[in-house]
Nucleic acid binder design. Sequence first.
DNA 1: TATACAATAGCGAAATAGGGTGATATTAAA
DNA 2: TTTAATATCACCCTATTTCGCTATTGTATA
Lengths: 215, 215
Amino acid sequence: MISLIRVMIFEDNKHLRETFRFLLSNSNGFACVGAYPDCSDMMENLAENPCDVVLMDIEMPGMNGIEATRLIRQSFPHINILVQTVFFEDDYIFNAICAGASGYILKSTTPDGYLEAIKDVQAGGSPITPGIARRVLELFKDKLQPAPPAKEYNLTTQEKKVLQLLVAGKSYKMIAAELFVAPDTIKSHISNIYAKLHVHSGTEAVSLAIRDRLV
Amino acid sequence: MISLIRVMIFEDNKHLRETFRFLLSNSNGFACVGAYPDCSDMMENLAENPCDVVLMDIEMPGMNGIEATRLIRQSFPHINILVQTVFFEDDYIFNAICAGASGYILKSTTPDGYLEAIKDVQAGGSPITPGIARRVLELFKDKLQPAPPAKEYNLTTQEKKVLQLLVAGKSYKMIAAELFVAPDTIKSHISNIYAKLHVHSGTEAVSLAIRDRLV
DNA sequence: TATACAATAGCGAAATAGGGTGATATTAAA
DNA sequence: TTTAATATCACCCTATTTCGCTATTGTATA
């Protein structure tokens, strides 16, 4: 008994859809268990025809491929979804990943490329067209390191401690107690902090401190 | 005149290093402009031998490939760095991307795979081994959607507005003015907000609101 | 039709925060 | 050695915040 990778196709372009079906039906190790132009009966299709991999177009009439991906992942988490598109849109890429796509390839891929990609996702990998992968890495970097504190504010070590306790929601008295100094000293520090941060209240200072990662 | 992709290699394993050198020197369109076992003289090497792509091992004696990647990106931002490793470590992947690696491949790649990957990075893409790409996507998802507000707090719409303005550093009076109601109304709302959030001061509320993404 | 909740508003008292000014001791830099 | 920055503390005064309690209105909901 040979293990087949069962693939379901969602692709609105009829010619492409039939090409995929033909390719999968005539390649060893692959089977096409359905090919549909839109996602109108998607959940029923998936429930009736078990499959391992879904080849999902993004641009489709009705529900788009990203929303469809999200739905499939919710009800059939074991299915690997290979998203394909003609566009490089950052929003597409970002949303497709968040929706749970397991791979993301460009439509310019060769027939063998498709088969390779389907094998890759089935094996637990995530084939990504290099051009798209570059965008993924850029997005990753942008989102994950939103610039270290652009401004330094030149807070002293004691001021930083006070600011931290202020962010923790402590009152002047409590901060004073924790740092073993007089409440008036804390008041003085906080005045200086406000001046350096150009704010005039605790809430403003806390807000800025958190957003600028001063704490 | 043919355009060559000039590649510099950093790889501590002598056999691998020489294999790469041989492969690049004997493949059309590629040139090896240097192959070193560590990064001790890296910056000088790069300054003296212009190159387009660096093939960088992660595990090396002395400076590791990730730190080296960071340094190269700082001084030679036009150079594309292709990182390779034998390990699937999430930390490696994460840090390599943040350091500015343009591609990330496993050492099990075939000779042709290396040449393809080098061509890909030079063309502005980011070849990533599917297995690693899967980890990248997982990391991406984990880091970017750090759980929606675990607690709901059941704030009303008006209370949310008030909280937002409080986070913006506004005083009771200013909030009242912006929402066209009496200051005492804001006082009431804030009392209710504090009760729902289990806090007792503006700074605490702002801190919690930002950290729990209520705003 | 009661009941609950949201939004509104007011009153009073106590606590806290914030602005200003000034002083002292210590330490680091010019 | 003078100067500048830091950390400390005090006093005065006002504004703001916080807590409690009460109360009205409109809108859903049981």
